[in-house]
C-alpha cells in the first residue's frame, strides 16, 4: 500500500498508532470513515493501521506473541461494514503525553491567535495553555509570540457569516484608490501580522482578497449572503492557498536578489518559482498586476533587491524613492 504523504515519518506513524488505540478504546464502536475524519487522515490509512494493530502486541509470558497477547478486532464488522471494534486490548489505555516541543508549538500558535474573536476570552487561552503544559512530558521551551493585531473588523466579519449576511466596507486598494465594496465573506487568511478577507465580491462576481487594514467602515448589511455565493463545498476549490488571484497578474518582472533576502520577498516569489544564479546574486521572475505593491517591497530592502525589467517597473521604484527623498531636500 502506498504511504500517505501526510504521515511520512515512522515517528508520526507511531504517534498515530498510540493515539488511535486510545481513541478506539474510548469509542468502543466506530466506523472507519468517522475515525478518518476525526484524525484528519484518509480512510485507507485507518484501515492500514488496524491491519497493523492485529498483528502486534506484547511478547507475553510465553515470549511468543500468543493470540491473547495481540490486539484483536471484530472481523465481520471490519470486513463487511467498515466498522472497528477492538475485542482485545494490549498495554494501552489512554492517549500519550505531548513532548515539550509539541506542546510549545501549539502554545505559541495559540498566542498568535489571541486576537481572534474565537479566542477573545483570555481565560480560555490561559486554561488551554495550562492543560497543554500539564499534558507535556517535559518543561515547555520558552517561545512566546505576540498576538497578531486586529482592529475589530474580524468580529464584524464573523458576525456577518454567523447571520448569513453580506458585508459592506470602504476599501482602499494598493493604488490608493477607495471604493465601496459589497462582499460575501468566505474565509480569513493571515500571513504573519497581515490579515486578509477572501470573499465573493457581489459587483465583480468573483472571489477577491482584501487586506483588513485597508478596510474601513466595515458593517453587516441586511442582505442575505446567498445569491452568487458558491456552495460551501466549492469554497475550498475557489479559495486555494495562493493569496492573490493572478488572473490579473500579466506583467512579468525580473528581480535580482541577494540570496539571503529571497525569503523576505514573501508572496512575490512563489514556492515553484525558478531561481537562477547570477554572480553572488540570484534572478527570479514574478508576475504582478501593477507595480504599487512591488515598489513598496523593493524599497523596504535597500541594496538587497534590484528590479531588472521591465523598464516601467524600474521607473516605478525609482520614482517612489525619489519622491520620498525629495521631502528631505526641502
Amino acid at each position: 500500500m502506498a504511504e500517505h504523504p501526510r504521515l511520512p515519518h515512522a515517528q508520526d506513524k507511531l504517534a498515530f498508532l498510540l493515539s488511535l488505540v486510545a481513541y478506539l478504546r474510548d469509542r468502543g464502536r466506530v466506523s472507519v470513515a468517522e475515525a478518518a475524519a476525526h484524525f484528519d487522515v484518509d480512510a485507507a490509512q485507518i484501515r492500514e493501521a488496524v491491519r497493523l494493530l492485529v498483528v502486534t502486541g506484547v511478547p507475553g509470558t510465553t515470549k511468543a506473541y500468543q493470540p491473547d497477547d495481540l490486539f484483536d478486532i471484530a472481523w465481520d464488522d471490519f470486513e463487511q461494514d467498515d466498522i472497528i471494534v477492538l475485542t482485545n486490548l494490549v498495554a494501552i489505555e489512554d492517549a500519550p503525553r505531548l513532548s515539550a516541543r509539541e506542546a510549545s508549538a501549539l502554545i505559541a500558535g495559540l498566542q498568535y491567535l489571541a486576537a481572534l474573536p474565537e479566542a477573545s476570552d483570555r481565560a480560555a487561552i490561559a486554561s488551554l495553555t495550562d492543560k497543554l503544559s500539564r499534558g507535556a512530558s517535559g518543561a515547555i521551551s520558552a517561545v512566546s509570540i505576540e498576538a497578531s493585531t486586529d482592529d475589530g473588523a474580524l468580529a464584524i466579519i464573523r458576525s456577518a457569516v454567523e447571520h448569513g449576511r453580506r458585508l459592506a466596507f470602504w476599501y482602499r486598494n494598493a493604488k490608493g484608490e477607495g471604493h465601496e465594496r459589497r462582499v460575501e465573506p468566505l474565509r480569513v487568511d493571515s500571513v504573519d501580522n497581515d490579515w486578509y478577507l477572501r470573499g465573493w465580491d457581489v459587483e465583480r462576481e468573483a472571489v477577491r482578497t482584501y487586506r483588513l487594514d485597508r478596510m474601513s467602515e466595515v458593517r453587516v448589511l441586511d442582505e442575505a449572503a446567498d445569491t452568487g455565493r458558491p456552495a460551501a463545498a466549492a469554497v475550498h476549490r475557489l479559495v486555494d492557498d495562493r493569496l492573490f488571484n493572478d488572473a490579473e497578474a500579466s506583467v512579468v518582472v525580473t528581480l535580482e536578489v541577494v540570496p539571503a533576502a529571497l525569503p523576505l520577498l514573501g508572496e512575490f516569489v512563489s514556492d515553484d518559482a525558478e531561481i537562477a544564479a547570477a554572480g553572488d546574486r540570484v534572478r527570479v521572475e514574478t508576475r504582478v498586476a501593477h507595480f504599487h505593491t512591488l515598489k513598496r517591497q523593493v524599497a523596504a530592502l535597500p541594496g538587497l533587491v534590484e528590479v531588472l525589467s521591465p523598464p516601467e517597473a524600474r521607473e516605478a521604484v525609482r520614482a517612489w524613492a525619489r519622491d520620498a527623498r525629495a521631502a528631505y531636500d526641502a
Partner: peptide
C-alpha cells in the same frame, strides 16, 4: 510537524 503530531495525540482523547 510537531504541532501536527500534537494534534494526532490529542485526537486520541476523542
Amino acid at each position: 510537524a510537531e504541532a501536527r503530531r500534537a494534534m494526532l495525540k490529542l485526537s486520541g482523547l476523542g
